[in-house]
């Protein structure tokens, strides 16, 4: 992706929001995150890809909620009261990411991001742009532009 957020271009320290899906840790650039909400039920969309859980009402705005686990090929998330929706703003669209839990806000140096290991499946290669080593855990940085539902391809 050629498109970069301003933070990626200028700062040598960026803040990331880390969260977990199953046993794995992931992160998003904090610049994309608008807010974090508890799980609310959604309205099912007809003919939507499986990873689109439905539409939610965020103070009058209608936005889709994506099951990140499903999107990443980690299996379907069964939403429960502890589940969390991260509201993010990506490419001029607002979207909710359904994840298991939000863990932390971390400050990292983008230069420290390591490339995704070569063992990658197609999905890993497409959606994970790199990893940060945080003590003994690996935090996978999500490529937000790729993770969004792709127009037309997912439509149906």
């Amino acid at each position: 992706m050629t498109e970069q957020t301003p933070e990626e271009q200028t700062a040598d320290r960026v803040e990331i929001v880390s969260f977990t899906i199953g046993e794995q840790a992931f992160c998003l650039d904090i610049g994309h995150v608008l807010e974090i909400r508890g799980w609310t039920s959604t309205t099912t969309l007809p003919h939507a890809p499986e990873y689109v859980v439905g539409m939610m009402n965020l103070r009058g705005a209608v936005l889709p909620v994506m099951d990140l686990s499903m999107r990443l090929g980690l299996g379907k998330t069964v939403p429960e009261s502890r589940s969390v929706i991260i509201i993010a703003h990506i490419d001029k669209k607002s979207v909710g990411f359904l994840v298991d839990a939000v863990s932390n806000i971390l400050t990292v140096n983008p230069a420290d991001m390591q490339p995704t290991p070569d063992v990658s499946s197609a999905k890993t290669a497409a959606f994970i742009k790199g990893v940060y080593m945080q003590e003994d855990t690996i935090v996978r940085a999500i490529d937000v532009h790729q993770i969004m539902p792709q127009e037309n391809m997912a439509a149906a």
């Binding site: 007809p46 669209k93 607002s94 979207v95 539902p149």
Partner: peptide, 17 residues
């Protein structure tokens, strides 16, 4: 009427929300 295209995309059979 709330448009769907703004945050998502058009859905066949659905005009808006």
């Amino acid at each position: 009427i709330k448009g769907l295209e703004q945050n998502y995309q058009s859905i066949p059979g659905i005009a808006a929300a």
